[in-house]
């Protein structure tokens, strides 16, 4: 059994970027949502944070659980609904610091996969509806939690810091499941880029739009906030200049050659003998 430590980064960056903008009401305390601005345009900021009093005990350390999944969906869907008639849809900025999905009996019994699907669907629908969706990774972006909160973004940005990590499974658990020691896993990860736990290796996969160096990822300085705000604005403009609303921008990494080969082949064979 593992006892996760609670990270404050998601909360801190949310408040740093939103300032005194009031929080949306009617959501669980583990979900922070505020309508602020980005580059002078309306933007909805969203963060999943630890709630030590979460009614679901397996989701008290910032995990994305049942409530978080459904509430994310509700908060994103509401923005899409509100902007239905607008030509310029508000941006959605997901501030990502999620240690994992919630692991528990209640979670499985009550369909956590469906809650997370609702969140992923809401983000994807927002993107397809024309909302610029930006994911800002300030801490951990793990597995199902990341799939539900941020991985559907048009553009992904991450802080260049040792505390920032994207992965399918934590080191200890991955070692146990693959019947390896943590040392063996680390040795392997050093030569197999998609298995590595550091953010530079992750960046080599081509999934990030930008990696951002800041001075204090834990307690951002005004200069740090300014730096991130300007990168988010760049991302917003990049999305708005891009006619595509899919995730194509992620396919160009040096370590995604096989992806490109498969996609080319499939596309070439798709229309053969059509009709």
């Amino acid at each position: 059994m593992s006892q996760p430590t609670i990270s404050q980064r998601g909360r801190d960056w949310f408040h740093a970027l939103c300032g005194s903008t009031p929080l949306q009401k009617g959501l669980p305390p583990s979900l922070l949502v505020a309508d602020g601005e980005l580059a002078g345009q309306p933007a909805r900021y969203v963060a999943v944070v630890a709630d030590p009093h979460n009614p679901f005990v397996r989701a008290r350390h910032g995990e994305v659980g049942l409530l978080e999944g459904w509430a994310l969906a509700a908060a994103i869907d509401a923005a899409v609904h509100a902007d239905q008639q607008e030509t310029d849809k508000r941006a959605i900025v997901a501030i990502i610091d999620v240690p994992s999905q919630a692991y528990g009996r209640r979670e499985e019994a009550y369909g956590i996969h469906q809650a997370l699907a609702a969140a992923a669907a809401a983000y994807a629908s927002a993107r397809l509806a024309g909302h610029p969706v930006i994911g800002l990774i300030v801490g951990k972006a793990m597995s199902g939690a990341f799939l539900a909160h941020g991985y559907q973004a048009n553009r992904l940005l991450a802080l260049d810091d040792a505390g920032v990590m994207v992965h399918a499974m934590g080191k200890q658990a991955a070692a146990r499941i693959t019947l390896r020691s943590v040392d063996e896993l680390e040795t392997l990860a050093a030569s197999i880029a998609p298995m590595a736990y550091d953010i530079a290796s992750y960046a080599s996969l081509g999934l990030l739009w930008q990696l951002l160096k800041v001075n204090q990822p834990d307690q951002p300085t005004p200069a740090d906030v300014q730096r991130v705000r300007s990168a988010l604005a760049d991302a917003l403009h990049d999305i708005q200049a891009d006619p595509q609303r899919g995730l194509q921008q992620r396919l160009h990494g040096e370590h995604r050659q096989a992806t490109r080969k498969v996609r080319e082949l499939l596309q070439g064979q798709w229309a053969e003998n059509a009709g």
Partner: peptide
């Protein structure tokens, strides 16, 4: 898990 982040 052997292709972790590319699978994700």
């Amino acid at each position: 898990l052997q292709e972790a982040n590319l699978g994700l």
